[in-house]
Design a protein around this nucleic acid. Structure first.
Lengths: 218, 218
DNA sequence: GTCTATACTTGGATAGAC
DNA sequence: GTCTATCCAAGTATAGAC
């Protein structure tokens, strides 16, 4: 029987090896999600990969689902921090596309996007899991919205663009592209889209819809 | 042990009840994918829903995976025919958005999108399943490409738009929106996007990027 | 063609020794 | 905290009676 709502941490005593085991399990969970997918990410497989024991997952995290959420947090926190620094420099539509390409390429190459996509698609199989994943996804839609607004501020067209809706669409597109890439194993198809997007962004700037070079220096 | 590649149909003898059972199983599989998701769509659940027996799935389809592909074919064939008739009337950007909205709304409401999304996301768990789903998805990217080209023909901007890439993006967006809708149970969020898209399409036409009223009457 | 019964596998989760 | 051993539920797939 799975805990319905909250996780009941066994009060981590930080007795040196405990933290080590926890981290090993989290890292193994991330790796398994990337390579094997949600359906094959079981307690046994994760523990084996971590060189640990299956029962320790339930001791430290209470359930496999909670471990998976911890894995998502681990991946998200790290990237969100780095990407925010990159996104702060956005001052035009072209730069928005550039940043999006850098992020998407790294996420797809390193498998970060896979972790998110697997949890989003697999959320339906675990009761209450969808809510938790959705909450963590909000950080990313907010990040996308901030990035869009930075680009929109430099554009005449941007004034009429609802940044929240655009951000939501970008996240959906991100997830969809990740899934399609895994489906047919064709990453280049998705990457090619950014090449096109760059051309369109450049075209839009030439047509005068945005001010191409606007350095952000407050 | 699952059959690795092909399905071995037991030479359907069309002895009246056989076809009836097959159809009942296909319909039950579709319904289960919609309501319960890929992970919970098992032979036992499908058979129960069909009022049939679990072992008949293997008798008629060889494996659960083959039944699921048959279910996808059933859903796709029906909709592709109807939607093609609708898409034939596209003569402007606004009409493209209108058609897209009609299709997406029906798919989301009726659960057609769920069937596709569930199979795409669940494809990773069954060896060789991804290839089969990807092949069936190609009908839809082709459909989207045709629709995009119809709209692009009426637009000055369209001349520089790579219809194949745009179509691929639309399919990815479609899948992503479906997944997000299921994640937080918020369908309206996705629907609101079409409202925005309509405004943008109208704006683009006003700005002279496309010829708004171009009746297709050959 | 359809059913019952069952073999076999894998998964989540727990008990209890250490 | 960590391990072994185990329970129990659910899955695919098959055998064989009808």
């Amino acid at each position: 029987m799975a805990k319905s709502g909250k996780l009941s941490r066994p009060e981590p005593r930080s007795s040196k090896s405990s933290a080590h085991t926890r981290q090993a399990l989290v890292r193994a969970a991330i790796e398994t999600l990337k390579t094997d997918g949600f359906a094959r990410t079981s307690a046994r497989v994760i523990a084996c990969r971590a060189g640990s024991n299956q029962s320790l997952i339930f001791y430290h995290f209470g359930s496999v689902a909670n471990l998976l959420l911890a894995a998502l947090d681990e991946v998200s926190a790290d990237r969100l921090e780095r990407y925010s620094a990159t996104a702060a420099q956005i001052g035009s539509l072209s730069q928005l596309v550039d940043v999006a390409e850098v992020i998407f390429r790294e996420d797809l190459d390193e498998g970060h996007a896979a972790v998110l996509a697997e949890l989003v698609s697999g959320a339906a199989s675990v009761p209450g899991f969808g809510t938790e994943v959705a909450a963590r996804l909000r950080s990313w839609t907010q990040f996308a919205q901030d990035a869009v607004e930075k680009a929109a501020d430099s554009s005449v067209l941007g004034l009429s663009l609802p940044s929240a809706d655009v951000a939501y669409s970008l996240v959906a597109l991100y997830l969809g592209l990740e899934m399609l890439s895994h489906l047919d194993g064709d990453r280049d198809r998705a990457f090619a889209l950014f090449h096109r997007a760059k051309q369109l962004a450049a075209l839009a700037e030439v047509l005068g819809f945005s001010s191409p070079a606007k350095e952000a220096s407050p």
